[in-house]
C-alpha cells in the first residue's frame, strides 16, 4: 500500500524521446510534402511536376491538366492527409484514455455509427447540405460509441479491451446490416456505395473545405489535452491523484474523437485500422508522452493514407483498389499480433 502511494504521489517517470519525435515530425512533414506532390502528379494521366506547380500558382482554367489538378487531384490529396490524421489521432486518444490497445474508431463501432446515420440522412432527408450531413455524422459516431461502451459496461467485470472489441464487431454488424437494409429499401445503394468501400476518389473541394476547420480545430484541442491524456494513460487513480479532473478530460476527449472520426467518415466512408496501427507505431518510436504522440500520429496517419491512396491507384490501373481494403491488408496482421499479445481475459 505504502509503495503504491509513493508511486502515485511523486510524478511518474514518463518515457519519451523528444529528439526522435522532432525528427519524425520534420521528416514526416517533408514526406507529406513529397507524398502530396506525388499524389497530385501520378494517376490515370501522369502530370509533370512543373505543370503541377503552374496549376497551383499560375492557374489557367483553359488547360485540361490544370483543371484535373485543381478539381480532382488536389482535393484528393488534401482529403487523404486530413482523414489519415483524423483517424490516427482519434485512435491515439482512445488508446490513451481507455488504456485499450485494441481501440480504433473502426473496431469500436464509431465509423459504423457515422455511416449508419449518413445512410438515414440519404434515405429520409435527401439533398441535405454537406455541413448538416457532417453534424449528423458526429452524432452517429457518438451513437456507435455509446452503444459499444454502454453495452460493455453493463457486463460484470467492466470494460475489458476484448469485450469492447467484441461489442464493437457486433454493433458494427448490426448498424451495417440496418444501413444496408435501408439502402435497399429506398434504392439509394448507388449513392452510398462509396461509404462501404471507403475511398477518397470522388472527393470534392467543397466538402474538403468544410471539414478542414473541424479537423484542425479538433487536432488543436487534442494537443491541448495531450498532457492530461498522458496522465490518464497511466491509470485513472494516478491521474486523479495528480489532480486531474478525469471526467472532464474524458468527455472532451471523446467529443474530439467523434469530430475527427465523424468528419472523416462523412468525407471518405468507413476506413478502419489507421487508428489502430499508427498510434502503436508512434508510441513505439517516440515513447508514451502524448504531447509527442498526438502530433506524430497526425503526421504519420496522413502519410499512411496518402501512400495507401497512391498505391490504390497504382496497384491495378486503370481500376482503383478501395483504400480501406488495402489498409486492412496491413492492419489485420497487426490486429492479430495484438490479439495474440492480449493477456487479460474478458
Amino acid at each position: 500500500m505504502a509503495s503504491e502511494l509513493d508511486k502515485s504521489s511523486s510524478s511518474p517517470p514518463i518515457k519519451s524521446r523528444p529528439v526522435a519525435a522532432s525528427l519524425i515530425l520534420v521528416l514526416g512533414l517533408i514526406g507529406l510534402g513529397l507524398g502530396i506532390a506525388a499524389s497530385i502528379s501520378f494517376g490515370a494521366a501522369d502530370i509533370h511536376l512543373a505543370t503541377v506547380w503552374e496549376a497551383v500558382f499560375k492557374f489557367n482554367p483553359e488547360l485540361t491538366q490544370h483543371q484535373i489538378i485543381q478539381e480532382l487531384r488536389m482535393p484528393r490529396a488534401a482529403a487523404a492527409t486530413l482523414v489519415g490524421a483524423g483517424f490516427a489521432v482519434a485512435g491515439a486518444i482512445m488508446q490513451g484514455m481507455t488504456r485499450n490497445p485494441l481501440a480504433d474508431s473502426g473496431l469500436l463501432g464509431i465509423n459504423a455509427g457515422s455511416a449508419f446515420v449518413i445512410v438515414i440522412c440519404f434515405a429520409f432527408m435527401k439533398g441535405l447540405p454537406f455541413m448538416s450531413l457532417m453534424l449528423f455524422s458526429f452524432a452517429g459516431a457518438a451513437l456507435g460509441a455509446g452503444l459499444v461502451f454502454g453495452i460493455s459496461s453493463l457486463a460484470r467485470g467492466g470494460l475489458s479491451p476484448v469485450r469492447l472489441a467484441l461489442a464493437g464487431a457486433a454493433v458494427s454488424a448490426l448498424l451495417t446490416a440496418l444501413g444496408e437494409g435501408i439502402s435497399i429499401h429506398f434504392r439509394i445503394g448507388q449513392d452510398l456505395a462509396f461509404f462501404y468501400a471507403g475511398g477518397v476518389a470522388g472527393v470534392k473541394w467543397m466538402h474538403v473545405k468544410f471539414i478542414i476547420p473541424w479537423v484542425i480545430g479538433a487536432l488543436a484541442v487534442a494537443m491541448a489535452l495531450s498532457r492530461s491524456i498522458t496522465l490518464l494513460s497511466l491509470g485513472e487513480e494516478i491521474a486523479t491523484g495528480l489532480g486531474q479532473r478525469t471526467g472532464v478530460v474524458k468527455i472532451i476527449g471523446m467529443i474530439v474523437v467523434f469530430i475527427l472520426a465523424g468528419s472523416s467518415v462523412a468525407l471518405v466512408g468507413s476506413i478502419g485500422f489507421v487508428g489502430l496501427i499508427i498510434p502503436h507505431l508512434t508510441r513505439f518510436l517516440v515513447g508514451v508522452d502524448y504531447r509527442w504522440i498526438i502530433p506524430c500520429s497526425a503526421v504519420l496517419g496522413g502519410l499512411l493514407m496518402l501512400l495507401a491512396d497512391l498505391a490504390a491507384r497504382l496497384v491495378n490501373p486503370p481500376y482503383e483498389t478501395p483504400v480501406g481494403a488495402l489498409i486492412a491488408v496491413i492492419g489485420v496482421p497487426f490486429f492479430l499480433y495484438l490479439a495474440r499479445k492480449q493477456r487479460r481475459e474478458m
Binding site: 452503444l147 453495452i151 460493455s152 457486463a155 460484470r156 467485470g157 469485450r163 467484441l166 448490426l174
Partner: peptide
C-alpha cells in the same frame, strides 16, 4: 450484445 453484456 445481450449475451456479451451478461458474460463474466
Amino acid at each position: 450484445l445481450y449475451l456479451l453484456a451478461r458474460s463474466r
